[in-house]
Design a protein around this nucleic acid. Structure first.
Lengths: 149, 149
DNA sequence: ATTAGTTATTGAATAAAATTCAATTTTTAA
DNA sequence: TTAAAAATTGAATTTTATTCAATAACTAAT
């Protein structure tokens, strides 16, 4: 067996999917051409950012999920925008938010196992600009990306 | 103009999408039939939970995003599983995780505005079983559902 | 209210894609 | 070594997306 999964899964994580016009048309009772036109309008207007697959992450060898609260240092030479952009670019990172309150940012991460997660957290803390982290391991995921687990 | 968006957006939030077999075939160099076969295998095996659209939530009138840390009460008659299932069933809720540490659960919520968010948070706190909450409003979303904003 | 310009709707035609099928190959496990 | 199961693939078929052109519905200015 070829290992197509390793190639295809990352592609489906952020793209290579499309809306089912015919299905939406049938379910709503609207003509397919109308659904098509309106979805194109939403895509062009930026309302829709893209289409993607949602996985059972434990079944694709990403069984560990954690949230990391982050404090950024307030040195003059540290650009918060830049630090959070760098965090966003990491493939293990599902989400990055700049937040109000005691902490500056909250990121959601997926890793193969705790070893890999430890590596990741270390790399975050080693980032110039990150002064403190607090991680919360997900013990059970009830809902993810609006989808019940 | 019909308001098709109101009907179609909720449908695309958790379904009515599909993988682009032809696109994956072209990009990987594999035959479409092979991609098709392997994706069906992943669907049947439960590796893929579904396909969905990702939105620019500020453009679909869900501009407020927040995370709520939750403490659940440890009364005998409170079932943590049940409480978190109830939270998961709410459409405003993007994710629910049972977590390790000081807090018991972390949920991610999207609302139209702060008024609506306040209503939501009140309803969560009014839940029998929820003893304490702490909310963190997202000031800037850098990445969501693996997609850069 | 009238009008002109823009945006939206839709059935029908066309193009593209998904799915099925059957023959073949590869893998697995006994 | 062998037989069963799983995976691959080109070609045929079915289904779906897309385009197109005619019409309708809005929008905003007079």
């Amino acid at each position: 067996m070829k290992n197509i999964d390793k190639v295809v899964i990352p592609m489906l994580k952020t793209g290579y999917c499309a809306p089912k016009i015919a299905g939406l048309a049938k379910a709503t009772g609207e003509p397919a051409a109308t659904i098509h036109y309106n979805i194109k309008r939403m895509e062009k207007g930026g309302l829709i950012k893209g289409y993607k697959a949602v996985f059972d992450y434990s079944k694709i060898d990403e069984g560990v999920c954690a949230y990391i609260l982050i404090n950024l240092s307030y040195d003059e030479d540290v650009n918060h925008e830049q630090v959070s952009k760098k965090l966003s670019s990491m493939p293990q990172v599902e989400s990055v938010d700049i937040i109000s309150g005691e902490w500056d940012a909250l990121i959601k991460v997926r890793a193969k196992n705790l070893d890999e997660f430890y590596e990741f957290e270390s790399s975050v803390l080693n980032n110039k600009g990150v002064s403190k982290v607090m991680s919360m391991i997900s013990l059970k995921q009830m809902k993810t990306e609006f989808m019940l687990q």
